[in-house]
Simulated assay, not measured.
Amino acid sequence: MEEWNLKKGSIRKIRDIVKNVKSSPQRLDVFKKCGEESNVKYTTSLQLDCPTRWNSTYLMLNTTVGYEKAFDKFEDLDGKVVIDFGEDLPCPDDRSKAGV
């Protein structure tokens, strides 16, 4: 049960950062530039899941794997993200707990 709670918390953190990026056209543009600067060659756009549909959660997690370097650069570039998320900012450990 504890393992599931850790996984659930990690998925929530990833969902929140994807939602944050997709919530504003300006933020999405900054994220895309971070991807270009990080040489991310991923063709699928970020997917936000519907928490009641497991397959959409899988698709969200699967697309974030390709953008890992872009997320790292985005977090470095946009200080507001770090302030807003604080401890809830996903880290590589959260990605592994979520199964990605």
Rank of each mutant, 00 (worst) to 15 (best):
L46V: 05
F71L: 00
K19S: 12
K97P: 01
V30T: 15
E68G: 01
T57A: 10
G79R: 13
K73W: 00
T43G: 12
T44N: 13
C91G: 09
L28Q: 09
P25C: 01
A98Q: 05
K80W: 07
T52E: 15
V81Y: 04
L46A: 11
W54S: 12
K7E: 14
V65Y: 12
V65W: 09
F31T: 00
S23M: 03
K19W: 02
R27S: 06
M1K: 09
A98F: 03
E75P: 00
A70H: 05
E2I: 04
A98V: 05
R12V: 03
G79C: 10
V81M: 09
N62L: 12
C34M: 01
F31M: 03
S23E: 04
D84F: 00
D76R: 15
K7A: 10
P92D: 01
I83K: 11
K8M: 05
L28R: 10
W54R: 07
V100M: 12
G35P: 04
G99A: 08
K69Y: 04
L28N: 14
D88A: 07
L59F: 10
P92K: 00
L61A: 04
F71A: 02
L77K: 14
T63N: 13
R27G: 02
T52Y: 07
R27Y: 01
T57C: 13
K22Q: 06
D76L: 13
S56K: 08
I17L: 15
V82L: 09
D93Q: 00
M1T: 11
E68N: 04
K32N: 06
M60W: 05
E68W: 02
P92W: 00
K7W: 03
D88F: 06
G9W: 00
V18P: 04
G66N: 11
A70S: 14
M1Y: 07
K73R: 14
D49E: 15
L46E: 13
V81Q: 03
